[in-house]
Design a protein around this nucleic acid. Structure first.
Lengths: 197, 197
DNA sequence: TGAATTATGTGTTGATCATTACAGAAAGGC
DNA sequence: GCCTTTCTGTAATGATCAACACATAATTCA
């Protein structure tokens, strides 16, 4: 037995919440701001999303699902792992800076970076960052298996290194770095590829 | 004409505030927490530091003055710029992870990384990050001038690149990376030095 | 000794926060 | 038409927040 139908689009509201959390973080985005951005009154919001904390968790999941692939799918592009990682980094130089449609930076890289975000949120975001590391690691492992990289390659070190470049670029994008400026950093990072001149 | 003398050590209190801000950020460190950590009642705190915002500004200045040099002075160590930057990064692998005496991460790298920190604080922190970039840039410029690096070196790209490695390592330290793990990333980053095999 | 000055401690202020009570409205099932 | 269910809007809840009023204590200068 269905009651009164919901008058707002749950997905559109979630996306609006995502953008606000992306820009402001968890604490600074107040329920008042969120209601306004989502075009929903607070009781409807609580009925649909349970709590501010649960809303954030839904928002970052939506973020990973919608904003992640355009960036991270590039890691699989190209025949070699070297090309894949370069494609990832160069792609990020375009998406990380502020644009007409998106805030600067990366919600997952820059979130929960101080203590005393709710523990569940900190855990969820840390998991996303660990997944980034895992993605890089998997690509590099593949390159070692295929012989693109020597068996002596320090896989952990190399994946952690490229993750740190990505994360650092996110901070600099937040500080206003342009795609061209980030591209310089990305190109420089590729010179660290084993065997590079 | 001096009135009643202050009963607490202003510098010790400032340092306690610094550590709390370092760990929690601006918003999440409440005046209540700060008073407790500093061992001071709020009216005394306001008399000595004016406001929470001004206290944060004093705290980050104290941070740069006391925590910066042990890390950034290493940039001048070594005969070459390459050695200096390697010393900086390797040194950071020891100081960035959580220790008995210090929280994980870097107050300047990880601060004001979301919107809606007070504008004056965001400006101050961004300036510290810009100074980091300037320090790297100056060292690399010197290396080009002395002939250590070719005149064709992309100075902006190289300094931005090493800044991003430093900043990324700060995030990973916050996520629990160990000195050994960070050392791998730092060593890998040095392979990007122009002319490296 | 007393006047001026500055710190301290208690307790409060208005604002803002996330969350919810409550009453009315819109749908389906009978 | 009526009951159940679910959503919407208004308005309130207690909690916490930064900041401060006020009275008192400690010091210096005259």
């Amino acid at each position: 037995m269905a009651g009164r139908p919901r008058e707002f689009d749950r997905d559109a509201a979630l996306e609006a919440a995502m953008f606000l959390f992306w820009r402001k973080g968890f604490e600074a985005a107040s329920m008042h701001d969120l209601c306004e951005a989502m075009g929903v009154r607070s009781p409807s919001l609580y009925a649909a999303f349970e709590s501010k904390e649960a809303l954030y968790l839904a928002a970052i999941e939506h973020y990973v699902r919608t904003q992640g692939p355009p960036v991270w799918d590039k890691l699989a592009d190209g025949k070699t792992a070297r090309e894949g990682i370069e494609n990832l980094l160069i792609g990020a130089t375009e998406t990380l800076p502020k644009s007409r449609t998106a805030p600067a930076g990366c919600m997952a890289v820059l979130g929960a970076v101080s203590d005393e975000w709710p523990a569940t949120i900190a855990r969820a975001i840390r998991k996303v960052r660990l997944d980034m590391l895992g993605n890089l690691r998997a690509r590099i492992e593949g390159a070692v298996a295929s012989g693109e990289l020597p068996a002596t390659t320090d896989i952990d070190a190399l994946s952690r290194f490229y993750l740190s470049v990505f994360q650092g670029m996110a901070i600099q994008a937040k500080d206003g770095a342009t795609p061209a400026e980030l591209r310089g950093a990305a190109k420089a990072a590729m010179a660290a590829w084993p065997g590079e001149a």
